[in-house]
């Protein structure tokens, strides 16, 4: 069970609660969208809820809580924020272009043609 220091101001506790609930709620909605939407390219979008505002709110909550508890500024969570904001878009872009290439070489007519590829082959691709 969680032990809360007695001198924690009430407004900090409320702020941390709101931020934690909001961030985890957004992450949950993001993965719900991952389950609900019907094609891969649409499914790319919802997880970014978790990786932008979701993680952001949890990091802010952690910063606020530890700053209040240790009564000194604790800001090293900024590092995670920097890494996540730089790395998630790059990973997603790589993944989307890989998926496009796979769909395209499989001869899926619903995706647009990347300009730097040869003509599609008719044979279907293995999983």
């Amino acid at each position: 069970m969680m032990s809360i220091p007695g001198d924690l101001p009430a407004w900090v506790a409320i702020l941390v609660s709101v931020l934690v609930l909001f961030g985890s709620g957004l992450t949950l909605i993001g993965t719900l969208g991952l389950l609900r939407l019907d094609n891969f390219y649409a499914r790319v979008h919802p997880p970014t809820l978790g990786s932008t505002l979701g993680v952001g709110c949890v990091l802010l909550a952690s910063m606020a809580y530890f700053t209040a508890v240790e009564s000194r500024p604790v800001v090293h969570e900024v590092l995670i924020a920097i890494f996540v904001t730089i790395t998630t878009p790059v990973g997603l872009m790589l993944l989307v272009s890989a998926a496009l290439r796979r769909d395209w070489t499989a001869g899926d007519p619903s995706v647009p043609l990347p300009p730097d590829l040869p003509k599609p082959k008719a044979k279907p691709e293995k999983q």
Binding site: M2, S24, L34, F40, V55, A99, R102
Partner: peptide
């Protein structure tokens, strides 16, 4: 398809990271 699995892995570790951060708040350990 394989790209769905990789995308889900991405969402999985982001959620796991948030979970570990909330564990940090719960226990008060840095």
């Amino acid at each position: 398809r394989a790209q769905d699995r990789v995308l889900a892995l991405d969402a999985f570790y982001i959620a796991g990271m948030s979970l570990i951060l909330t564990f940090g708040i719960e226990t008060g350990e840095t």
